[in-house]
Design a protein around this nucleic acid. Structure first.
Lengths: 336, 336
DNA sequence: CTGTTAGCGCGTTCAA
DNA sequence: TTGAACGCGCTAACAG
């Protein structure tokens, strides 16, 4: 056990072969005679040889590493994506450089620069703005990019995203099957794409059911938090708004149920509530909430798969955009 | 804007200087005359030159990258640590290679191998076993290791950890100041170090108050979940156990409050409950829960600081173990 | 202050 | 099937 690091050469010397042969047993074992292989492996073991990826990266111009750029790691939605990506990458022996942009474009830019300098083979990115051109520097050095949780023109790049319109659709379609009149949506700002899409889906569901979409009662909240949900729930109870309620995330839904309870309205008896996200919070209210589940893990896995495919295919590669369909997770909050 | 990558040499040629000078303006600008610097920077800009870290890493034998090995990323406790680490590393222009061991030693080993091959400058690791010797391979290639959330002998390595004994102590000391008789602890398996430590702290608090530690009523649960907490809460209500309750994590505490409520016992009027962790769940029950807060962010930051210090100091470095003191976050669940 | 030079460890020709 | 030799892009001496 020595701490020195003489590289292939030392191994080659000990095994009585050339460095090329050592390199071959490591990377293209089929080209080396079994006997030689064994000798080399023994030498590697003997010397505790650890291949130097930096040298390989320099030589090959690309590194067995990929970047993952997300806006926030504490958010369980992104955490789930990170989990999936890291696992898929690990399976293929890729390192994952995690970058958290915190919604700061300058920081995001620095991350791209860094990944470019590392000669990362590619990057999975949840961009904080729609300005895809900022990603050009990564492109330049041959890195490949996949947009995650964002749909991007197939001329630009591969992307994976979740169909939020469909999510809103199935949520409200489900509500419409429950006895009652009218539907209310508790939504965040419509400037957020996801919020707008979920709303569009809700209206679509109404239309399909032969109901005027404008009859949808809309409650917009500034922050999509439990607190805002509570306030919304109270307002719904007080104003006699519809008792079939679609909340565009789970926190809002949990809050709404509380707000309703404050006014003596019990879910699901007096009202039906659907949330969105199906995030694993530590409480069991979430376990009672009917919600729209997103295939986060699958999205992460496919993102990695797309990236690796793009690397493999080279110039022949055709970008593709995959959209995942969310699914309804039916639980107590709508069981009447 | 070309996609080619001719390196320092191209920049040097365009700026009419040598490669060494270009390298200097990048890494030691103070050694270069301002005028020259400007010319070089202009050339860099002109060619969209992106330095190649792999080459630098090869040359220097170490990479501006550090590994972060954790058991689980979906767990908000680790997510918070990742957040802190990534931010601190980013500030120093270090890339962070995230590895998730999923409690699998073989996988953890692969991660270490990979980090060694990448010639990561160091790694922060939450080891899944106490077998510190397995980390020797990383050591060998000059990587430096910091143990996170684990206390390690200072002869071995630097470490950062949280004093769970103290956490149990302050939790129960707080409970003892509330009117009532006896204390019950709802705890996970004592084979888990954290659980055992929190219990020890609880007993310590009793002793200090002149109470026989064995009077502590102990409820052990198999899984530290909300469900288990509910069951425990019911049991407490039924058996007339003490109404001053210390739960060794927040999920248990939330469950206990529910279980008590099922039997008509209202917190804080009929019982006082303290949790542990102060994790940001999406519900506001957590916002009402008195709990033991852990300085997760600080721990992550200090871990990075220790690593960078170790890198800077070289052979002169003395390992150190820092223990963070948790603090009580007093909220409604104990306000009587 | 700047240029010259010599590798860092590896992968990949091309010959043998 | 194996070996010799070159160079990937950069940094660190050292010289000027």
């Amino acid at each position: 056990m020595n701490g020195q690091d003489l590289g292939l050469a030392a191994v080659a010397r000990l095994a009585g072969v050339s460095t090329a042969t050592v390199s071959n047993v490591l990377n293209r074992p089929h080209l080396v005679a079994p006997a030689t292989q064994e000798r080399v492996l023994a030498a590697i073991d003997e010397l505790d040889f650890v291949p130097n990826r930096a040298a390989a990266a320099l030589r090959k111009g690309t590194n067995r590493m990929l970047g993952l750029v997300i806006p926030d790691i504490v958010n369980p939605f992104y955490a789930a994506i990170v989990d999936a990506v890291v696992e898929a990458a690990d399976r293929e022996r890729y390192a994952v450089a995690l970058c958290v942009s915190h919604e700061d474009p300058a920081r995001e830019q620095r991350h791209f620069d860094m990944l470019a300098e590392q000669r990362a083979a590619g990057a999975l990115v949840v961009p904080i703005t729609a300005d895809w051109s900022r990603l050009s520097q990564l492109r330049m050095v041959g890195a490949h990019l996949i947009a995650v949780d964002r749909r991007v023109d197939e001329a630009e790049a591969c992307s994976v995203a979740i169909d939020d319109v469909h999510g809103g659709d199935i949520a409200v379609t489900h509500l419409l099957a429950i006895a009652g009149e009218g539907v209310v949506i508790v939504n965040g700002s419509r400037t957020i794409v996801q919020c707008e899409d979920r709303r569009a889906g809700a209206r679509l569901a109404l239309s399909r059911a032969g109901i005027e979409p404008d009859s949808l009662v809309e409650l917009e909240v500034a922050e999509m938090t439990v607190e805002a949900g509570i306030a919304a729930g109270r307002r719904i109870a007080e104003t006699g708004a519809p008792r079939r309620i679609f909340c565009t995330n789970d926190q809002l839904a949990i809050g709404v149920m509380r707000g309703l309870a404050d006014s003596g309205l019990i879910v699901p008896d007096d009202a039906a509530v659907v949330g969105y996200g199906d995030l694993a919070f530590g409480n069991d209210e979430a376990r009672r909430l009917t919600t729209v589940g997103q295939p986060k893990h699958e999205m992460g896995e496919v993102a990695v798969a797309k990236l690796l495919a793009e690397l493999r295919e080279g110039a022949a590669h055709q970008h593709s955009a995959t959209t995942f369909q969310p699914h309804l997770v039916i639980r107590e909050s709508t069981s009447r």
